[in-house]
Nucleic acid binder design. Structure first.
Length: 922
RNA sequence: GGGUGAUUAGCUUAGUGGUAGACCACAUCCUUGAUACGGGUGGGGCCACAAGUUCAAACCUUGUAUUGCCCA
């Protein structure tokens, strides 16, 4: 067989200027990214950027320290990507935006892990010298800092990784001590008391995390307190308020009773005595008493009848502490879920009790000592215990026996099953016990205003993104109690106070304080030792007269001081105080945002930040919390290994991070598709710009309308992108970019100009104008995309300019000429694009019937006027007839063998049109 | 249990009282020449649910559900 002689189809492909680039469509990010990272690192990228931005306006993002314990998770990844985006966009705008990362290193979780290691080695923490133990904690924290640092680096975060801040640096520890002493010197510190979880076995306070709950059986007792005074209902005098408790040992420390203001009470008579209890709990109460019915002749208790009433302790005959009448107080926490609806209050041994009593001027008495025994001078059961001993609390034990003899015990049985806290370590029962603690007062006026007032004022001076963060922080500051600074632990910054023995008064001498700070600066937290105490006290004070406080600081005080030892210290000369921005998860309203605010307001009278940005939490695909037990966690390390950091970054910057948001397989698939679209846009630009150089450039004034319209769109987007950066609206930022790339470029501009790019002569002014605009677009888009796709943008940059040139990340914001904005032109082109859409709709049925294939086979009639614009080119059809009723027909013209347009001058299918003949011939 | 957010198409999301929009995905057609790509067209929403205010509600009010964060 031979080819038909009449169709010598010539292949013009070689004469067409097709895009040419080595930039691959398949990204291969997991393989490429580490190489790009290594190059940045080798060139000391962070330092170089600092040098280049020196002297520019600053933007200070102050990094909140993650806890140095465990691998990076999705929350860390999101948080750091957002921070990096802030820093990079501000840098792109030309500012000097340093980023010093930090870690929170002290605290119980680390202490606990180290203890766990000790236990595995059969070592007892208490037998190890504290200095040695702290050294282990330090090493443990350092290990996780190093691990997390490498994981965060992999995200492409541009930070001062070689010089991070750690709360356990000696310099940091010394600053924290100095900041604490500022509170002391300004009178914003006092020693008070507070019930804490206490283990009588280990004789130590426990944190919530050190407590586990187990079911036990306790003795439950009902105790009658005789009413001795009832100004609002005098008939109640002589009746008995009945309380119920599962901790009989607290009765010897009772100081008040509480009733529920909303609870309905009744007065009934049993065996000649009148009892008061909640109506809803009558059945259970009577069953404990072992009676079947009562005389309810007294009826319901009048509302307010218990207000201002007093009772007396069943052991009042002992005198002293027990003789004092007990108030009846209204407590919102009193419910009718169990008991009698009346609750006995011991401020020493319960949080509700403590708070209610404190509000009514009743102080704790510290009757139970650290070993769980009543102190020796206690009138009842002095020196006896321990209070957690079941026999001590039993129905036949000493407490119940005495109560029974006094007539106060109505019922007692060792049969109440409930969940009760135990020490995680010893498995022994724990109790609430009031212990001395150090507080920062919220409502004490110092230098004009209280700390609460200063903090509230500072909040109103701060910008919040989103705005609702303001309310959240305000309501917490307005409602919070005094700040408890002390912890009875080992791994932390010491509360470096000397207290005058026999008082609660700490020594306030700046000379002593200066020596203490110097000591901690030299030796870290170990510098606060008994051996060095006299050295700090100096010649003016004798150690024998003082108690050296051995508590450590709440770790929130540590992190609340980061602004002091990072921004102010001078160790990072690029930084300055206050920070422009703090950026953390919404849980930090209670945490770091607040501790930093209070710390700074207490010492500097204002917030350490000008703005606070909060992000939500990452949920699984269905919006459920991620947890290991549900198996719905997404591990960012796996994701980077499988898909690349740029995909993770694009995800973080596409979702609405100000709210809770989701991640999952389907969502990530969508992100990957979006990435591919952007990547392909760059690939096209690189291919279409092959061989482009300055001499080809055309002045904007000489460009066709379409090119000027595109520059208008670019300039318009530029304004919106700047606004998005100012608003930290990254979701919008990325959407502006992708919509522009997809709709304005790929589906419109590139599609229309394909003909010119492929088929016009290299010297054709239209083609030159097109390539000039592509070059402008390239420079703009690669910079816009750089803060988002940090690796891909670098790859694009190097593909165009070679591996030896500067990084794209040293660039400034694109120079987009505001003069390109041409509203009138844009309005006209808006109409043309509308007409183009209509044309597509009219052409579509022909394509669908297989009447035509390509739209270039169409002759289109347009009812309007097009001015100078060649609509055939814009609509991508063969010809447009003006001034006729809108419609499409198949052309009779032949197809040019090179540009595929159907034109009258083409003599036969496959022959050349005039333009192509010139190009090929010339 | 309390406080405080969220809920718009399969996904990511615009939308501050006047006919609910977009990108992606999906279906389908075109494409020798952006080809592990590109273009066209189309379907798809009781705006979580229920009451109320209003001439008119995704939007304002109240409640419910689901779900998050903080606290108890």
């Amino acid at each position: 067989m031979t080819e038909p002689a009449d169709s010598p189809k010539q292949d013009y492909r070689d004469s067409v200027f097709l895009p040419k680039t080595d930039f691959p469509m398949k990204a291969g990010l997991p393989q490429k990214e580490p190489g790009i990272l290594a190059r940045w690192q080798a060139a000391d990228f962070y330092t170089e950027l600092r040098n280049r931005r020196r002297g520019r306006e600053k933007f200070i993002l102050h990094d909140g320290p993650p806890y140095a314990n465990g691998d990076m998770h999705i929350g860390h990844a999101l948080n750091h990507i957002l921070k990096d985006m802030v820093v990079r966009t501000q840098t792109l705008l030309g500012k000097d935006a340093p980023y010093v990362p930090g870690w929170d290193c002290h605290g119980l979780p680390i202490e606990w892990k180290v203890e766990e290691q000790y236990r595995k080695k059969k070592l007892n923490k208490d037998e190890v010298p504290a200095v040695e133990f702290r050294a282990e904690c330090r090493a443990y924290a350092q290990n996780w800092v190093d691990t997390q640092r490498e994981q965060l680096k992999r995200l492409g975060i541009n930070a001062d990784w070689d010089n991070p801040y750690l709360t356990m640096d000696f310099q940091a520890e010394a600053t924290i001590v100095a900041e604490l002493l500022k509170f002391a010197e300004s009178g914003q510190l006092y020693r008070g008391a507070k019930p804490v979880m206490w283990s009588p076995v280990e004789k130590t306070a426990l944190a919530e995390a050190e407590v586990e709950y187990e079911d036990i059986v306790s003795t439950q007792i009902d105790v009658a307190f005789e009413i001795v005074e009832a100004p609002n209902e005098p008939s109640l005098v002589g009746a008995f308020a009945v309380i119920w408790t599962t901790t009989p040992w607290t009765i010897p420390v009772n100081q008040a009773l509480a009733y529920g203001p909303e609870v309905d009470y009744v007065v009934s008579e049993v065996a000649g005595r009148r009892y008061i209890y909640a109506l809803d709990l009558e059945a259970a109460f009577l069953s404990r008493l072992g009676v079947e019915s009562v005389d309810r002749g007294y009826g319901p208790l009048k509302t307010g009848g218990l207000v201002d009433a007093f009772v007396r302790h069943p052991m009042h005959h002992l005198g002293g502490f027990f003789a004092k009448p007990r108030s009846m107080l209204a407590g919102d926490f009193v419910t009718t879920e169990s008991g009698t609806g009346l609750v006995h209050m011991s401020p020493d041994h319960g949080e509700d009790d403590f708070d209610l009593c404190k509000a009514n001027g009743i102080d704790p008495v510290f009757a139970v000592e650290g070993d769980g025994k009543y102190r020796a001078d206690w009138l009842w059961l002095g020196g006896e215990g321990s209070v957690i001993n079941p026999k001590f609390n039993a129905p036949d034990g000493p407490i119940c026996t005495a109560l029974r003899e006094s007539g106060g015990l109505l019922a007692a049985s060792a049969d109440y099953k409930h969940s009760y806290p135990h020490s995680w370590r010893s498995k022994a029962k724990v109790i609430y016990r009031c212990t001395p603690q150090w507080f920062v007062p919220m409502d004490k006026a110092t230098v004009g205003a209280t700390l609460r007032e200063k903090a509230v004022a500072a909040i109103s001076d701060t910008r919040f993104i989103p705005e609702k963060g303001r309310n959240r922080l305000s309501s917490m500051v307005e409602g919070r109690p005094d700040w408890v600074l002390s912890r009875q632990r080992a791994w932390g910054v010491p509360i470096t106070l000397f207290v005058k023995k026999g008082t609660n008064q700490y020594l306030d001498d700046p000379a002593v304080n200066a020596r203490i700070i110097a000591g901690v600066r030299a030796k870290g937290v170990d510098g606060w030792s008994e051996e060095r105490a006299q050295e700090y006290l100096g010649p003016d004070y004798a150690l024998a007269d003082y108690e050296r406080v051995t508590d450590i600081l709440d770790v929130w005080f540590d992190s609340g001081c980061t602004h002091a030892f990072v921004l102010e210290s001078g160790r990072w000369p690029d930084l300055q105080w206050p920070a422009d921005l703090y950026l953390e998860g919404s849980d930090q309203h209670r945490g770091w945002f607040q501790s930093s605010l209070l710390q700074s307001c207490g010492t500097r009278g204002r917030a350490p930040y000008n703005a606070v940005l909060t992000h939500g939490f990452t949920m699984d695909q269905k919006g459920m919390k991620m947890s290991k037990s549900l198996g719905n966690t997404i591990n960012p390390l796996d994701l980077m290994r499988d898909s690349g950091a740029d995909i993770l970054r694009l995800w973080a910057l596409t979702v609405d991070f100000t709210e809770d948001h989701r991640i999952g397989k389907e969502i990530l698939q969508g992100v990957s598709d979006q990435y591919r679209k952007l990547r392909n846009t760059f690939r096209y630009l690189l291919g279409a710009l092959d061989g482009f150089s300055d001499p080809e450039k055309v002045e904007v004034a000489d460009m066709p309308e379409l090119e000027r319209y595109m520059l208008h769109l670019l300039a318009d987007m530029d304004v919106k992108l700047r606004q998005a950066v100012d608003d930290f609206d990254f979701n919008n930022y990325v959407r502006l970019l992708t919509d522009f790339a997809n709709e304005d470029l790929s589906a419109f501009f590139f599609d229309i100009r394909k003909d010119s790019l492929y088929c016009d002569a290299a010297t054709d002014p239209k083609r030159m104008a097109y390539r000039t605009v592509l070059d402008i677009l390239f420079h703009a888009l690669v910079r816009y995309a750089a803060p988002v796709l940090v690796f891909t943008s670098e790859e694009v940059w190097q593909t165009r300019f070679g591996a030896d040139v500067d990084s794209v990340h040293f660039s400034d914001w694109p120079e987009v000429d505001a003069g390109w904005i041409d509203t009138k032109l844009a309005e006209n082109w808006g109409r043309i694009r509308g007409a183009r859409m209509l044309a597509n709709e009219l052409i579509e049925p022909m394509r669908r019937n297989k009447e035509i294939g390509s739209s270039l086979e169409v002759e289109y009639s347009y009812s309007g006027d097009a001015g100078e614009i060649d609509l055939a080119e814009i609509f991508i059809v063969s010809t447009v007839h003006l001034g006729r009723e809108e419609g499409a027909v198949k052309t009779a013209n032949h197809k040019c063998g090179r540009c595929w347009r159907h034109l009258p001058e083409v003599v036969d299918d496959g022959a050349l049109c005039g333009r192509c003949a010139d190009v090929v011939g010339g």
